[in-house]
Every structure is written in C-alpha cells, then in structure tokens.
Design a protein around this nucleic acid. Structure first.
Length: 557
RNA sequence: UGGGGCGUAGCCAAGCGGUAAGGCAGCGGGUUUUGAUCCCGUCAUGCGUAGGUUCGAAUCCUACCGCCCCAGCCA
C-alpha cells in the first residue's frame, strides 16, 4: 500500500477536538438499528462509521436495538442483524442492548417531567393534535389539556400505564412551545398507548416511549459520547438537547448527523425491498440481486470489499448519489487480490485434439493465483477432448479477435498451444465441434517456430469436469434513479437481471467449493457457490461481478 | 422572510485567505499464458450565480439561485 493517508472527515476532526479540549475523555458510539428489517448497504455505512470511529479513537461501540415500537419489530430481525454485523467484521461492546432495557427508567423520567410541570397528558386525538400543531408556516396553539395540574397528570399517566385508557385516547406530551418554528418542539408526544406485547418486554407495558424520548436518554444511560445519526434527524437535535437538559440523566451525549448513502441503480427503502420480495421480483431478502447484506453475502461480496467501499465514499453532510460502479470496483479489487483462480466454461464447445491419444490423461499444474504463491496450486486433467467457450472460436475473424480461429492457433491457459484444423457442424449448420492439433512441445514455453499465439483461452477437460449451473446477474434496475419522484420503481426493474446457464463445465477442483468462497473464473468474472441452490453433484455458482471488459467496450464502439 | 441543512469534474471527495489532493469512471500508451491485474500518462484557468473586501478568494462579506429534510401517537 502506497496510498497516502486519507484526509480526516468532519466527525474525525470533531472528535479529535473533543478529545484535545477535554470535552470527551472516552469515545463511545453506538449502532442503533430498529429490529424491523434486514441490514442493507446503507446501514453498512453507518456501521463502518460508528464502529470505525470507536476503533480509531480507542473507544467502544454498542449495539442497541431501538425497539420502542412493538408494532413494527420482531425477534427474527434481531438475530439477522447480529449475524450481519459479525459477518461484516465488527464486535460490539458487551452484550447487545435494547432501548427496552430502559423502559423502567424512561417511565421514571416521564414522571419526573410531569412533576416538573414539563409534561402533560393530552386527550386530543391524533387528528386533533395535528390541527393544533399548526403547519410549517403557521404556529400551533396550546392543547386544551396543556395546563392540567401535576397531580391530575400523574393520575392520568398512571391510568395510561395501567391499561385503563384505549389506544389513541390520550398521550403524554412534553411541554415545550407550540409556536416553535421547529415543529419537533411543538409539545412532542413522548409516550403513547399500544396495547400489544413487545418482543423483549412481553406484556409488561401498554405504553411505549417515542423515539425522541428514548433515544437520547438511552445514549445518556450507556454513556455514549457521540450519537451519530443521519441528516433527517437534524431537526430533532433541539428536542434531543432539551430532554437531556431537563432530565437528571447520568451523562450528556451529543448528536451529530451525516448524509445517508444513496446508490444509483439501487433502492434501499424497506418498503420497496419488501415489495420486491413479496411480489416475487426476487427470491427473498437474501436474493443475490438484493442490496441487503445477506444478499450481497450470498452474491459473493466480501466484508472487506464492503468496508473498503464505505471508506472510499467518505462521510459528509451533503446529499449525494454514489455510483454503484464504486461498489463494483471494491469487490473486484478485493477478489482480484484474494480469490483463487479457476476455469469454467459457460457455453461449452467441444474440441478434439486429433494427435492426442485417446484414453490418455495427464495432470497439468496451474497456479492458484498469478501473484499470490500462498494460494495452493491446482491440478488440471488434460485429455483428448476438451471444452472451450463457444464465443472463443470463429471460422474467420480479423486480427483484433485474439482467440481460436480456423487455420490459426491459440494458447490454452495453463496448457498447450492448439491449432484449429476443421469444424464439425450439425444439420442446422451450427458448429458442434472443432478438430484441432496440439503442439505438445508448447507447455510452459513458446512454440518451436517462435510464433507466439496472440490469444489465450480457458478450457476444461470434456472427460473430467464438474457439471454446474451458473447464474449471471445484472443490475436489478436499469434506471439510475428508480426511486426518483414520479415513477414507479417496479417499472425500472431490469428484465434481464438474471441469466441462468445450465450445463456449464468447471474444473474438477470446484466440486469442493464452499459458499462465500470467491473464485475468479478466469476471463469470466468472480463467482461463488450458491448457499441455497444446487446439489453436491451439480453446484450452482453465482457471478458476483464480471471482470472489467475492454474487449466488450471495444466492440461496442 | 416558517425552520433546518447542502451546493468543488460524469460520480464520490479533500481544501478552512497564498494560487484546485485523492479515488471511481473515461481517454491514450506499456507489460502480461486472464482482452483481467499491474504500470505510465491524461482528465476543473475552475469551486451554484452576481457583486464586494483583499496584493491575493473555493475559502471572508452581501444578495440571489438550486437541491434536500420537517406538519406519525414511525424510526
């Protein structure tokens, strides 16, 4: 690595200053997902930021499930989120925490606010409350219940807690300022009635704190120094601070915001992802085309590639749309450095070497990687009949075509040079076989005539190989902004986002490929065995990403 | 004159008064038993616009323009 040190982003600079000036002595961050869905590439940015900052400054990062709304959340997601975080390579500080761990304390603080005359039980319906709240440009007006006595509020809140009120009948509100230009300060609701069981606390509660009332206080309880969230919470910061100032909390966390990730050709909203799953556009939340971490994992993305990507895109406060090409770059980069090489013919064309003895088989040695000699070498059976890629042979071609042409020669990767002498066609006139001669004196050296073939193609023995299915994925959407206003994102689904190839022929070693282990199928791209489909005899391989292809680019000119 | 943010290349992004880093993409070339990788070169007289301050402005000031967020008892 000769890369220069990456310049610090605004949060790194800010934390350095906090440390230098003694405002903070221990950096403590947290990653606070709501357990209501699977983690996706957008979450990865937040994960890398929070855990990364903690690591960089010798601090800690907690995992906290922000579970204040039992209507939306499920235990299933808790487990999936933990699995994805561990896979990404991050270890949270201590046990996973839950906002619901603090429901008792939060309740006490609600009582505290009531006693201080800073919160009241409001009987306005949701609809009425909205009307009293005013609009973006007009101030709101006080609720008729704004001035209830402390005693009455205490009684009422107690009755809320005891289940004596119906859902929606009343709520607890912080008493701040109905005329505040920031709508979040217009007496925000801090407790609401939800008569449903909670995945962590069971039926202990029928009132639940709102996000605003829980988040900052949980930060304070956990001793979080820097509470980092996305830009849309910016307007909540004054409320966050108001609560911290008006409650006897054990520490004084501060909230900071950064821009969430937007990726072109991608949607990441939970609703839309769910729709893709429910309507069968994809195979599930972990479909290899999904931007979920479980989907990316199944597709063959590595934790390293995702972390590098997050590092590469930076952290700022400006809305931006990252080119998905950067994500593709980062996985290619990682796999190029680390993935073992292999050969697999996707669309087989039979080649017979007329001067190679029938029944003979020799084992040719091939390196596991062109520069990584720590990756084990491979053994490739070489036989009289072979398969090459259909598109690697032409009866005639101009000199730009560097593959096998009738009457010309080509190098078989890691093997001999062959010469195409004749073709065999079927009744339909399609080429079904190429008859070649092999130069047995060309293994590991140029042919004796000194004429070096200009092309090298991959191959696999037709007698010893692994029959397999290969799935080629393209972008899920063919519109750079499927999310953009006006259009239906489903209309942007790329109809050619999946191509399933059967009867592909892989080199023998691939029979033992493990899911998630990436391979480069030379000249074809990076692949990994699918974790869901395929059998022991006939594995399924997912193409993670193709190689850069300047030949295709040249042809499209 | 609701409030809060943000505008640097096709994309991401440094820069914080001293004359526009880096990455992705692109383009040109070299090496190569992967049309990959790698290597070299190239790519903003310009920083949303217009004024102003200054010897000097992307950086400071003023005014405009554009985009994003906020009116859930969601997070």
């Amino acid at each position: 690595m000769i890369s220069e040190r990456k310049p610090a982003h605004f949060l790194q600079i800010l934390i350095r200053e906090d440390l230098a000036e003694g405002r903070v002595t221990q950096v403590a961050t947290r990653f606070p997902p709501e357990p209501n869905g699977y983690l996706h590439i957008g979450h990865a940015k937040s994960v890398c930021l929070n855990f990364g900052l903690a690591r960089e400054f010798g601090g800690t990062c907690n995992l906290r499930f922000d579970d204040t709304n039992p209507a939306r959340e499920e235990e299933e997601f808790v487990d999936a989120i933990k699995r994805d975080l561990s896979w990404l390579g991050f270890e949270w500080n201590g046990e996973a925490r839950y906002s619901s761990d603090n429901f008792d304390q939060l309740y006490e603080w609600a009582l505290y606010l009531i006693k201080e005359g800073k919160a009241y039980v409001c009987d306005l319906s949701a609809e009425e409350a909205r009307q009293y709240r005013g609009t973006l440009k007009e101030p709101g007006k006080n609720s008729p219940y704004h001035d209830r006595s402390v005693e009455e509020n205490l009684v009422l809140f107690e009755r809320m807690r005891n289940g004596e009120m119906a859902e929606g009948q009343c709520s607890l509100r912080a008493k701040i300022d109905m005329a505040a230009p920031n709508i979040n300060l217009r007496d925000p609701i801090i407790y609401r009635i939800k008569k449903m069981a909670h995945h962590q606390t069971g039926d202990k509660w029928c009132i639940y704190p709102s996000y605003d009332f829980a988040h900052g206080q949980c930060d304070a309880i956990e001793g979080i120094s820097h509470s980092i969230c996305t830009l849309e919470f910016e307007d909540h910061r004054p409320l966050y601070d108001w609560l911290i100032e008006n409650l006897p909390v054990p520490s004084r966390p501060r909230q900071y915001e950064f821009a969430r990730l937007h990726l072109n050709y991608t949607v990441v909203s939970k609703r839309k992802l769910k729709q893709l799953v429910d309507e069968g556009h994809v195979d599930g939340w972990d479909d290899p085309r999904m931007p979920t971490l479980s989907g990316l994992r199944r597709r063959g993305f590595t934790p390293t590639a995702i972390r590098n990507f997050c590092e590469m895109i930076g952290v700022t406060r400006s809305d931006s749309v990252v080119d998905v090409g950067m994500l593709e770059y980062s996985i290619r980069d990682d796999l190029d450095k680390n993935a073992p090489r292999a050969m697999c013919v996707l669309a087989p064309l039979k080649v017979t070497l007329k001067n190679y003895p029938e029944r003979q088989q020799e084992m040719l040695a091939a390196p596991g990687h062109p520069v990584r000699d720590d990756l084990p070498a491979r053994e490739l059976p070489f036989t009289r009949t072979l398969y090459i890629e259909k598109e690697d042979f032409r009866e005639e071609a101009n000199k730009k075509y560097k593959r096998l042409v009738l009457g010309k020669k080509v190098r078989l990767r890691n093997a001999y040079v062959i010469f195409a002498e004749a073709v065999v066609k079927n009744d339909a006139g399609e080429i079904v076989e190429v008859i070649c001669s092999v130069d047995l004196d060309s293994l590991g050296k140029d042919p004796a005539d000194g004429v070096k073939p200009k092309g090298v193609i991959h191959w696999v023995s037709a007698e010893k190989n692994v029959d397999c299915e290969v799935r080629l994925y393209d972008r899920l959407f063919n519109d750079p902004a499927p999310d953009a206003g006006g259009k239906n994102f489903l209309d942007c689904v790329n109809p050619d986002n999946l191509q399933i190839l059967k009867g592909c022929k892989a080199e023998v070693g691939l029979a033992n490929a493990e899911p998630e282990q990436g391979y480069q199928f030379e000249r074809n791209g990076y692949f990994c065995r699918d974790s869901k489909y395929g059998s022991v005899e006939t594995p399924v391989f997912n193409r993670t990403i193709g190689l850069r292809d300047s030949w295709a680019k040249e042809q499209n000119k």
